[in-house]
């Protein structure tokens, strides 16, 4: 019994030395390894592109890259496009909300917003428009399921915005604007995370 254990331990020692020597020869000095770190950052950036002189109160900035604000008048019409860039983690998406962030109008006046489908510039998984909503002071989701994509920059890229007023006659938007009471809407891009 004792002898057997001795033999076993000797065999294991021999095997150990053998594997060690194999390891040494395997250390080939004609090859060298290096590690490389690749990072894809999460991205959620939004901006306006306007046809003509629109009143943008807050365009894209690096301080608040996911918020933009514009003043809405009957002249705004359909001259604004939403551009965005998005990179998401596995299983997540980005979405865009909108709300009236400044100003108010008489009870008989309302403002509808029709969000066009992505016009097909750029690439990737662009968001899906909710169609038409009535704007309010509460944020409403207007574009969902934004994956990793970019719309391109400029007009006729991304989603066109159509503003439709009801009873604009009773709303003196120019006066309100002078008084700092203009209607402004803020768009925000956020992650489902």
């Amino acid at each position: 019994m004792n002898i057997l254990t001795k033999i076993e331990s000797q065999i294991s020692l021999i095997l150990l030395f053998y594997s060690l020597s194999t390891m040494v020869t395997a250390q080939n000095n004609n090859s060298v390894k290096m590690s490389l770190s690749l990072k894809i950052s999460a991205v959620a950036l939004i901006d306006f592109s306007t046809d003509g002189n629109q009143m943008i109160t807050y365009s894209y900035s690096t301080i608040e890259p996911n918020n933009v604000e514009q003043i809405i008048t009957p002249a705004t019409g359909d001259k604004t496009w939403l551009n965005y860039s998005s990179i998401v983690a596995n299983g997540l998406t980005n979405y865009i909300t909108v709300y009236i962030s400044s100003g108010s109008f008489p009870a008989d006046v309302s403002l509808n917003l029709l969000i066009g489908a992505d016009v097909g510039a750029g690439a990737g998984k662009k968001g899906i428009s909710k169609g038409q909503i009535t704007l309010s002071v509460f944020p409403q989701v207007i574009i969902t399921n934004i994956g990793s994509c970019y719309t391109g920059q400029g007009i006729h890229k991304g989603h066109q915005l159509y503003y439709k007023w009801k009873n604009t006659e009773s709303y003196d938007y120019s006066l309100n604007y002078e008084n700092g009471k203009a209607i402004a809407v803020t768009y925000t891009i956020s992650s489902t995370e």
Binding site: V32, M34, D47, G152
Partner: peptide, 24 residues
Amino acid sequence: FALIETNYAPVSLSLTTSTAGAAV
């Protein structure tokens, strides 16, 4: 003999964009 080595410079790359509407 054939010997190879590097300067062990750390290499990190990051894909991102800082412009809304632009690709990385």
